[in-house]
């Protein structure tokens, strides 16, 4: 799993590639925590994310909670199989998916 991050002022775009599972989720979490303080616009580009488990959902939920307090969070290019998991878990209603 690789994570590409693009920070422009207070706007941060994060693009994780591959699998977001129990093992890799901590990696994404630590990456986000590093920049979260200054960010107001958080964008997740999930074009290359092929797999997500509850561990990944947890990271997304934490991020959403954090951003609810100080800005916006958007998910883009979500693949159908990821979308299906968002639907099952009700995350589709709490996340902003474009």
């Amino acid at each position: 799993m690789t994570i590409q991050k693009t920070l422009q002022g207070s706007a941060l775009t994060v693009a994780p590639e591959g699998r977001l599972d129990t093992i890799t989720s901590p990696q994404l979490e630590s990456e986000l925590r590093a920049d979260m303080n200054s960010v107001t616009d958080l964008v997740f580009d999930l074009a290359n994310l092929t797999y997500i488990s509850s561990a990944g959902l947890r990271v997304l939920l934490s991020a959403q909670k954090a951003m609810n307090k100080k800005g916006t969070m958007v998910l883009r290019n979500v693949k159908p199989e990821i979308m299906e998991i968002f639907e099952i878990t009700g995350f589709s209603s709490i996340l902003t998916i474009e």
Binding site: S53, S54, L57, R58, L61, S62, Q64, K65, N68, I85, I88, T89, G90, S93, I94, L95
Partner: peptide, 17 residues
């Protein structure tokens, strides 16, 4: 799963999934 993001617990989702 109908709760808002802030109301939701972190965890407990796995077995449900």
């Amino acid at each position: 799963v109908t709760l808002s993001a802030d109301e939701r617990e972190i965890g407990g989702l796995g077995i449900f999934m």
